[in-house]
């Protein structure tokens, strides 16, 4: 592929759609499956990860000339873990309900492969502004994916969207969709469907 000039828009769109971390790169699967039991949780997790991603991308990019090559991964991990802990503290302080329903998956944002992967693949090679935009694009791509998955699971599994009762009083919802198996199956079907649409489009051209 020819070296494209990286503009703010191209970087943003790249993260949001072309290289969507969840549906295309298939990164960060643990939170994708675990917290998508309701739309609120999905959105909360997505935005928390986005905040960490923007901050860590920016800082890694600013420090990219100072951090020695040999210990760069360790340095990235420290930076990411710091931001994650800050987010965790803020959630505990200001949104305690969300914090308790996301539980252990907040500190586990540290090991979300998307964040480390972006630090290594993008932020360590680009300037801070582009890196922040990349973080925003990737983060929103992740958030969007989580919202889609969690909306589907909440609708099918609890009969609600954003906690608002839709049909649960008339038809018993399929609880299994918000339990572990539902997570795997919904994501599997979604990725399969996206593959199908993409291949159809390519065939048309």
């Amino acid at each position: 592929m020819a070296e494209e000039k990286k503009t703010i828009t191209s970087v943003f769109i790249n993260g949001l759609i072309k290289e969507n971390p969840t549906f295309v790169q298939l990164l960060g699967m643990c939170p994708t499956l675990a917290v998508t039991t309701s739309l609120q949780n999905g959105l909360g997790m997505g935005l928390s990860a986005t905040a960490v991603l923007i901050c860590s991308n920016m800082l890694v990019s600013i420090l990219r000339k100072i951090i020695p090559d040999k210990v760069r991964i360790a340095a990235y991990i420290v930076i990411i873990a710091t931001f994650v802990t800050i987010i965790q503290m803020c959630l505990n302080a200001f949104l305690p309900d969300l914090a308790s329903s996301l539980g252990l998956f907040i500190p586990l944002i540290v090991v979300n492969c998307i964040i480390l992967a972006r630090a290594e693949a993008f932020a360590s090679k680009n300037n801070p502004i582009l890196s922040a935009v990349d973080g925003l694009g990737m983060g929103l791509g992740f958030t969007g994916a989580l919202c889609i998955i969690s909306a589907i699971r909440e609708f099918l599994g609890a009969g609600t969207i954003w906690g608002i009762e839709l049909y649960g009083t008339h038809i018993a919802p399929a609880t299994i969709m918000i339990m572990a198996p539902g997570g795997f199956i919904v994501l599997g079907l979604l990725v399969g469907t996206i593959n199908f649409i993409v291949s159809k489009r390519k065939g048309d051209k």
Partner: peptide, 24 residues
């Protein structure tokens, strides 16, 4: 350098923790 990064991180966290803990 690694030590400096870690030290700054720890200091920052101590600060945020002191601010948020009473709220929690």
């Amino acid at each position: 350098i690694l030590f400096a990064i870690t030290a700054i991180a720890a200091a920052l966290l101590a600060f945020v923790n002191a601010k948020t803990e009473p709220l929690v």
